[in-house]
């Protein structure tokens, strides 16, 4: 038991979170190994985003604990910066910084947190822009890019910190349909490269393709954790079955 625990990159134990009187997360337990790809799905308002936002402390939580690399998350500015170096995040609305160029967006974190020089940071930035296949956009401002390109920049921005794990919070939900596949391709490539990933998404095709583990959440609880073959063909709970029938009916 202790042996297997040591290999978990992320452990969430009894996590509970309240917004005022509203219980957003209740008794969340989840373990993610290094290199594991976890896809989280569930109806809106089920706490998926809140859960992954707790992992890099964008949200505080009232109960339970989270361990990353065996180290417990505490609300201490220095420790938080160290956690955010290890855990990258991609948002639904990209949240690029509109006042600086794409290249500068990518350089900011490495310069400020990893203490890279400007030229080192620029070099890293270009490397990841090439990885997401838009190096020619480096000198543009985010508003000059399409949604799909912006999200790819956001992925590259997170990768520039050289994270050990990536969190994706509905990365394709704000995209026009024709932009989605480009972003998913990048994510598949990332997954095949061995990145530890937790992806909140409704893209079930992507889930089938890359997920090692499916997590289904409803009403702030984890209802089901299963490998994708089992989850999609033989869901164990009524709620996941209902959700799947709704989402896959078209």
């Amino acid at each position: 038991m202790s042996n297997s625990e040591a290999s978990h990159f992320l452990q969430i134990k009894g996590l509970g979170k309240w917004f005022g009187q509203f219980c957003a997360l209740w008794d969340i337990n989840l373990e993610v190994n290094s290199g594991e790809r976890v896809v989280v799905c569930g109806p809106s308002g089920s706490g998926k985003s809140t859960m992954i936002r707790c992992i890099n402390l964008l949200e505080t939580f009232e109960a339970g604990e989270i361990l990353i690399d065996g180290e417990k998350l505490v609300n201490n500015p220095k420790k938080i910066l160290a956690i955010r170096r290890k855990v990258g995040m991609v948002f639904q609305n990209f949240n690029l910084f509109p006042h600086i160029t794409v290249l500068q967006n990518l350089m900011l974190g490495p310069i400020r947190n990893l203490n890279l020089s400007k030229s080192e940071a620029a070099e890293t930035a270009m490397k990841y822009l090439e990885k997401v296949q838009i190096p020619e956009q480096a000198k543009k401002y985010p508003s000059q890019l399409s949604g799909g390109q912006q999200q790819r920049v956001a992925i590259a921005r997170a990768l520039c910190m050289n994270p050990e794990m990536m969190l994706f919070d509905e990365p394709t939900s704000a995209l026009d349909p024709e932009m989605i596949s480009g972003v998913l391709d990048i994510m598949v490539e990332l997954a095949e490269g061995g990145m530890t990933m937790i992806v909140v998404t409704h893209e079930m095709g992507f889930a089938k393709q890359v997920a090692d583990t499916m997590v289904f959440m409803d009403h702030g609880e984890i209802v089901e954790v299963a490998p994708p073959e089992q989850f999609f063909t033989n869901p164990q709970s009524d709620r996941s079955e209902l959700f799947l029938s709704q989402i896959l009916s078209h």
């Binding site: 890099n56 964008l58 500015p77 910066l81 955010r84 170096r85 990258g88 995040m89 948002f91 609305n93 949240n95 690029l96 910084f97 900011l108 974190g109 400020r112 947190n113 990893l114 956001a154 921005r157 997170a158 910190m161």
Partner: peptide, 21 residues
């Protein structure tokens, strides 16, 4: 709020979040 969150998630301390973003 998204700008704050992206900057914080990107590893910037509060000082640099304010100064740079």
């Amino acid at each position: 709020k998204g700008q704050w969150e992206a900057a914080r998630a990107g590893g910037l301390s509060r000082f640099f979040v304010l100064r740079d973003v």
